[in-house]
Write a protein that binds this DNA or RNA. Structure first.
Lengths: 237, 237
DNA sequence: GAGTGGTCTAGACCACAAC
DNA sequence: TTGTGGTCTAGACCACTCC
C-alpha cells in the first residue's frame, strides 16, 4: 500500500528530474499544493519534509520552498557505496571469494561488540570482493548464531543480506557505522591487492534488526583509492 | 520560542540518559504519552519521530517504540568530528595558523565548484590546524565574495563560521560532503606533519545558505590517523 | 478483539517575509 | 496587510501484533 504523501513526493521528484520544476524557483505554497493534490495541508507537509530531508528543497519560513539544484555535481544519494553499487557504477565484472566460513566461540573483542556471553556462538565470514580482476574489499562479518542458525558458502558468495531477509525473514532496520583509516594488517596484505597503498579505509558497522536487537558486527576494509562516501548534512536547528 | 514537541523530545532524551527509561524496554504508547504530556497524539508523534531519527528509539507497528541501547559504544552524534570537537575530545591544546588569505580570480576548477562566472571573485583561505603541537588538518576554503565582502586574518584564526553567522547574519543551512582518500600533495607535505603517513583523508564540502545559494567550497585535508567519521543509518523502507 | 503505530483530515493560531 | 511555513488539535480509519 503506497501512501498519499509518498505519491505526492514521487510526483514532485519526477517533475524536478524531468525539468518541469526548475531549480532555484519556489514550489507552489502548501495551501496551493493541498488544493492541487486534493488533500490536506499536513499531508502535503509530510511530502515536503521528505523532499527536504533528501535534499531536494529548502524550506524557508515566510517565503516558501526553494528547489535545490541537486544534480549539479552528479551527487548520488547519501550513504555508503556498497560493493554491488560500486561494481555496477564502474561497469566492471565482479565476484566474491569466500576465504573463511566457520562457527566460532567469539573472542573478547567480538563478545564485546555483539554484547554476547561466553556460551554464545557466532558465524565468522571472511570474504574478498573482486572488481575488474582486482581484490578491492575485504569483508569480515560476525553474526550472532541465535538469529542465524545456518550459513553456507553458496549464500556467502551470493548475498547474505538477501538470504537473511528473504529466507529467514529477518528485517535489517538500522546500522551504526564508523569510518577510520588504518594500517593494513597481514590479513589485508595477503587477501587484498593493495598495489603499494599504505592504508585501508575501514567501515565498522553494528547492524540491528527491527526489534532493535544487535545481531551483526562487520568490518569492511577498502583499498583507499576505491573508497568514496557521500553525505548530505542539514544543519541542526 | 521552544515548541511543545521539542520539550517532550528533550524530556525523553534526559530520562534515557539518566536511566529512568531503560534500554530494550518499550516506551509508553503514543496515546498514553499524549495523556501524560497533556497534548495531542500528532504532537507526541513529532517528538517520537525525532527520537527515531536520532537513533534513540525504534518504532515497530503494532508493538510500540523500543528504546535503543545508544550509549553502549560511546557513540557520538552522527556527523563529522570538527576541528574544535576533536581538540576538545583529546583535551589537547590547539591553534590555527593562517597560511594564506587572499582575494583571487578563481581558476576553472573553483569556478566550476562554485558555479561562478569569469568576473566573480573569491576569498581563498588556507589554514593549518594544530593539535598538541602537531599539524593535523589543512583547511582550504573558497568563499564567494558576493556574500562575504571582507575577511581578516583575525577572523580566520578565530572562526570564520561564527563571523559569518554573527557579524554578517548569513545562515549556513546545509552542506553536501564527499569523503575520499588521496595521495598527499606537495602542499600537504609542506604544511602538515604527515609523520610518514602516505595518504590524507579529504572531505570536500559544498556549503549552502538558507536561501539555497551555494557560497563556499572547502577541502579539509586530514592526517589519516586522526580522522574518524560516524554515521547512523536507518534502512530506507 | 484490544492495543499499537501509520495515515489523513479540517480546522486553528503563530512567527516571519514581503509589500 | 497578506501570504508563507511551523505548530497544534481532536477526531477518524487503517494495518499490524498479540492474545
Amino acid at each position: 500500500m503506497t501512501t498519499k504523501y509518498l505519491t505526492i513526493y514521487n510526483t514532485l521528484v519526477e517533475q524536478m528530474k524531468s525539468g518541469q520544476i526548475l531549480p532555484r524557483t519556489l514550489l507552489p505554497s502548501e495551501n496551493e499544493l493541498a488544493e492541487q493534490f486534493d488533500t490536506s495541508r499536513e499531508t502535503i507537509r509530510k511530502a515536503l519534509n521528505l523532499l527536504s530531508q533528501h535534499g531536494y528543497i529548502q524550506k524557508v519560513r515566510g517565503k516558501g520552498s526553494i528547489v535545490i539544484d541537486i544534480n549539479k555535481f552528479d551527487f548520488p544519494i547519501s550513504g555508503l557505496v556498497s560493493f554491488k553499487e560500486l561494481a555496477d557504477k564502474l561497469n566492471r565484472s565482479h565476484r566474491t571469494i569466500v576465504n573463511e566460513l566457520s562457527l566460532i566461540k567469539p573472542d573478547h573483542f567480538i563478545r564485546n561488540q555483539l554484547q554476547l556471553t561466553l556460551k554464545d556462538q557466532v558465524w565468522k565470514v571472511i570474504r574478498t570482493r573482486e572488481i575488474g580482476g582486482e581484490k578491492i574489499i575485504l569483508d569480515k562479518d560476525y553474526l550472532n548464531k541465535k538469529f542465524v542458525p545456518e550459513i553456507t558458502t553458496e549464500i556467502s558468495e551470493d548475498s547474505i543480506y538477501s538470504y537473511l531477509e528473504n529466507e529467514l525473514n529477518l528485517t535489517i532496520s538500522f546500522a551504526k557505522k564508523e569510518i577510520v583509516v588504518e594500517e593494513p594488517t597481514d590479513e589485508d596484505r595477503s587477501l587484498l591487492d593493495l598495489e603499494g597503498y599504505h592504508n585501508v579505509v575501514v567501515i565498522k558497522s553494528h547492524v540491528y534488526l527491527d526489534d532493535a536487537s544487535l545481531f551483526q558486527y562487520t568490518e569492511s576494509r577498502h583499498r583507499p583509492d576505491k573508497f568514496r562516501f557521500v553525505d548530505f548534512a542539514r544543519r541542526s536547528h
